[in-house]
Design a protein around this nucleic acid. Structure first.
Lengths: 370, 370
DNA sequence: TCACTCAACTTGTATGTACATATGGCGAGC
DNA sequence: GCTCGCCATATGTACATACAAGTTGAGTGA
């Protein structure tokens, strides 16, 4: 019999809570007096007082000297059940993030959770501020999109204190390798591979790749891009791989694309773009040189965002779960909270991007072949 | 001597709190044991326990069985200062809303407020749920984007209870006429007027208007559209004004546009679209009929969203403050909270949309003139 | 009929005792 | 030098008693 008997006052508390849940006692009903309960349960009035004290603290009962003890209104009771979950993303308004937030928000609302939202603008210092503010009041769980994950994790101590406080959390899109928690990620390497493979199978041999490499997403897409070239034994000229950072995204890739088209002896026949946003941007760049997509240059985007359908030439791109990712994250987190599952990386999920072939890619023209 | 002597346990509580405030006891210092205090203050251990119990409840102390009682970290104490503000929008992921949310979020974060986010999907029932959840825990203020504002306000009681609880709130984008609070709105009627005026001055005489009329935004844009026709004394055929609701937005305007082009004896030469999203959609519709924008049909969008620049033919559109609106809303609300300004409609702000002329509108061709 | 008193009941405060249980240090014994 | 067990001390639980203070209603008296 290792199992410990609950203290009497706790047993009484459970009993009374069960009365409330069973509807035996309704709002503003008067409770039996302390002495009545004491006699009925064969315990002293002091013990009953201890129980009533806790129940009052927790908002289930209220007491009036000289009159008696009463059941609180359901409003006051139920409100304690509303829990809050935080989401910390890099950006809010850009691109696919609103869809992730929306998926999570609707799942959370349906399950009765409130959503705290904060963004980091991909800035470690803001990530720290946001974590501090979020944790300053009771939090039931946290969904995190890591900030600049290719550069390590200076806010590790905050994440450790999440463990210490037993607050469940999970990561989306990317992960900090040193942390052991469930993560919902997209297999970006596979996506990069599929993009390059698609173009190679269409006969392209000079494919330029534009990748944002200050987050793991871009690094992994690049990795898959390279692996496809190796696997198909296509030599890849170093100047056909363009790296850029978040700060440079407005200029560098655009100018590099124009350079590649106009300067290179043999211009590339296809671009693999870090995402749809960049693809649209490079579509412009191609047009300014007088060339056409897809006749002269094939384009592959990433993420299947709304932008991919807004253009006249609909973009070939790779899917991103977006809303589904947000919904899955919220539901997994709620499951962790309600079933007290421990953290652990085994839980997560990996999404494989699927290629969507539209109008921006085309079999390489005979005239283009070197 | 009316003044009642405080109970002993309360006196002790005051005493211990004064120790904490005076810095006599620092974080994680060990308190004297219950028995020591009891002897020192000439009271029983039970009384000391009562005091300690309350101080523990309030977060000042924590107790460890067998070890002793300790002072909590200042973190736990000071954290009570972080306040929470809610934002209730119709949509989260769509269109310009992410920008509004982003503007508000960054302003709030900078000022040390947390952001609770919820959406209504333009559904009154969900609006009610969201309000309930938000108000279930302390809230310092609320930013509301009204749901289906053209159809009245069934959740009025919730808004009245905001007043009752002295929670400041303000409205963005639209307003419930019966409520007296600051509102930040865009002068949509002026926008509708400018859109029509622009086309009229380019010589267009048969201008079709597509408006979503289940919210006030669309109704007002339509109003301005009509006013321009009156002012320039252009007769407007009833069949050139297309109404639709949120549910119909995928089909009705698209089909109506094709009908207008193909069925009408004299097809319209320009479309005024409820927003950029619809404009892109109708751009497609025009293309399927073999006509071109802007040569055959001029298009005006609304809101200057990122979509307006994604297309090959850059959209002529009207500005929307978006991020600025979110930032302004957050800062006004913080001002109301911190300076205890009362609600009142005098505070708000009205933004006037500006016309941005791009490539989708053109002077009417001689061949087009009936 | 009205106002007052008072008894009986409620919860609030205060103290005393007893034992249970968790912690940490000390010393005996290996 | 290490381990084990004991002990002192801390908080946790439980019960008993006493009186204070607020509420209610029945009973009393003018």
């Amino acid at each position: 019999m290792k199992e410990k008997q609950l203290p009497k006052y706790m047993q009484l508390k459970q009993e009374i809570l069960s009365w409330l849940h069973a509807g035996k006692l309704k709002a503003n009903d008067q409770m039996p007096s302390e002495n009545e309960i004491a006699e009925q349960f064969q315990m002293s009035r002091q013990t009953v007082r201890q129980t009533f004290g806790e129940l009052e603290q927790e908002g289930w009962l209220y007491r009036m000297q000289g009159k008696g003890t009463y059941v609180s209104t359901p409003h006051t009771q139920k409100s304690r059940d509303v829990q809050t979950i935080g989401i910390l993303t890099t950006y809010i308004s850009d691109y696919i993030f609103p869809h992730i937030v929306r998926g999570a928000e609707s799942a959370l609302r349906a399950r009765g959770y409130r959503l705290l939202l904060s963004s980091t603008d991909n800035d470690k210092e803001k990530e720290k501020e946001s974590l501090q503010m979020m944790m300053s009041q009771p939090l039931s769980g946290l969904i995190i999109e890591p900030t600049r994950s290719a550069e390590g994790n200076p806010n590790l101590s905050f994440y450790l204190s999440l463990d210490y406080q037993h607050i469940p959390y999970l990561m989306i899109n990317e992960r900090y390798p040193e942390m052991n928690c469930p993560s919902l990620i997209v297999d970006d390497e596979e996506g990069g591979f599929k993009a390059a493979q698609h173009l190679i199978e269409l006969g392209h041999r000079r494919i330029a790749g534009f990748f944002k490499t200050d987050d793991l997403q871009g690094v992994n897409r690049l990795k898959g891009f390279l692996r496809a070239h190796q696997q198909y034994q296509i030599p890849l000229l170093p100047e056909l791989v363009i790296h850029y950072t978040t700060d440079e995204k407005g200029q560098k890739p655009y100018e590099s694309a124009i350079d590649l088209i106009t300067q290179q002896a043999e211009r590339p026949t296809a671009f693999v773009c870090y995402n749809d946003e960049l693809a649209i941007h490079l579509l412009e760049a191609v047009r300014t040189t007088g060339l056409q997509v897809p006749q002269d240059i094939s384009l592959v985007g990433f993420d299947d965002s709304s932008l991919a359908l807004a253009t006249e030439v609909k973009l070939t791109t790779l899917t991103h779960p977006k809303t589904q990712l947000g919904t899955d994250a919220a539901e997994l987190l709620i499951d962790m909270i309600e079933n007290k599952r421990r953290n652990g990386s085994e839980a997560g999920k990996v999404y494989t991007p699927e290629l969507i072939i539209r109008e921006s890619t085309i079999r390489v023209m005979p005239s283009q072949i070197g």
